[in-house]
Write a protein that binds this DNA or RNA. Sequence first.
DNA 1: CGTACTTTTGAATCGCATCAAATCTGGTGG
DNA 2: CCACCAGATTTGATGCGATTCAAAAGTACG
Lengths: 209, 209
Amino acid sequence: MQSAIEKLDWPSLIEAQPAAGLIPIGLRQQAKRLDAQAHEPLFRIGDPVRCVYLVVSGEARLIRLARNGSEVILQRSRGGFLAEASLEARSYHCDAITTKPTTILMLPVAAFRAALEEDPIFRSAWQSQLTKEIRKLRAQCERLSLNSAADRISHYIESEGADGILTLNQSRKSWAAELGLSHEALYRTLRRMQSEGVLDVDGVRLATK
Amino acid sequence: MQSAIEKLDWPSLIEAQPAAGLIPIGLRQQAKRLDAQAHEPLFRIGDPVRCVYLVVSGEARLIRLARNGSEVILQRSRGGFLAEASLEARSYHCDAITTKPTTILMLPVAAFRAALEEDPIFRSAWQSQLTKEIRKLRAQCERLSLNSAADRISHYIESEGADGILTLNQSRKSWAAELGLSHEALYRTLRRMQSEGVLDVDGVRLATK
DNA sequence: CGTACTTTTGAATCGCATCAAATCTGGTGG
DNA sequence: CCACCAGATTTGATGCGATTCAAAAGTACG
């Protein structure tokens, strides 16, 4: 488990993750780049909040452990900010880990708050970001309120895919966790839906019919 | 089903709902007060977004109907803003209804956006509001990811109550819906937890032991 | 006092979690 | 290139807990 903080090349960062382009110059100068390996912890519950994390490439997750030991996925970022709510907290309320080799920008909170005050464009982008996250979380709540596996799968395809077609960008096992299902239930339900003609499964491509 | 739009008395509004005090003067002049009865719709899916809603007293809910006809509660506001994400949307993605006689402030979106641009204090309060909502929604997602009724109940008491003590401010039946359970399951599980000595139930007062 | 709604209990059913185990897959090192 | 390993995928069997349907009792309110 090693990570490297390297020199920043903004044009390539912005190409990889457009949100980086919204960061004002003053804040950019304080940014640190972190190249993390897979399964590397970024922070843990209780750690003091020092930075806001922006995922440039790869994937990072916000997770919490249930008392029975199972892992709940609270956010999965494949680009964009992670743990937005930490900006207003003293310490973290969740753990954050990478799931694959991941490039991250770390933005010190004090400078981040100052930039929000000073830069109207950045501020507006941040508000949009928060709003989008709220909408995403509501969709997730709605999905988890459905109590059949098939309904959750259909809901996910409808809300995360386009025109009823979803290209799965994670393993099915980890998708199962995101759906709040055991992986066995997901496998079986996918098969059943396909045999019933409700779903078209072709590798990572899923389409409702 | 009737509702009344009346003259505004800001001191009393602010006393009932402190968030109203953060609204800048310019925006206050555009606010409309709505006194709604119980079970009155505020807006419906697809309606164009004209106003941001601030619940002053009473209760309003954001709901969506699942395909099987059951009602999913996406937000329950007993004071504070409702449907924050609507500020960035053309039309509503959910229905909103009151559940009891409710006083509401309606703030036109254009003036609301302008006030956010101009007033740093209001803006900061709004960002805090969005952030709080994100944290609340993550807690709700975490809760819905637990698959036993007892775990969801404990989680709710821990996260919504204080020091393991919760004073329930809604009917148990509607609490069941918020927990993603059938009301029968909730009743039975409460009884079982009490008989097992895990929970202390006394009317609307619930305490974990 | 009647009506609508919540609370409560019962019984039957079904779907998902769980435990177990086999197979498949991609990546690593010899 | 092949052996090997960890993790993902798949299938099977079992049990539990939640849903569902039904109905009775309690409660609030006009």
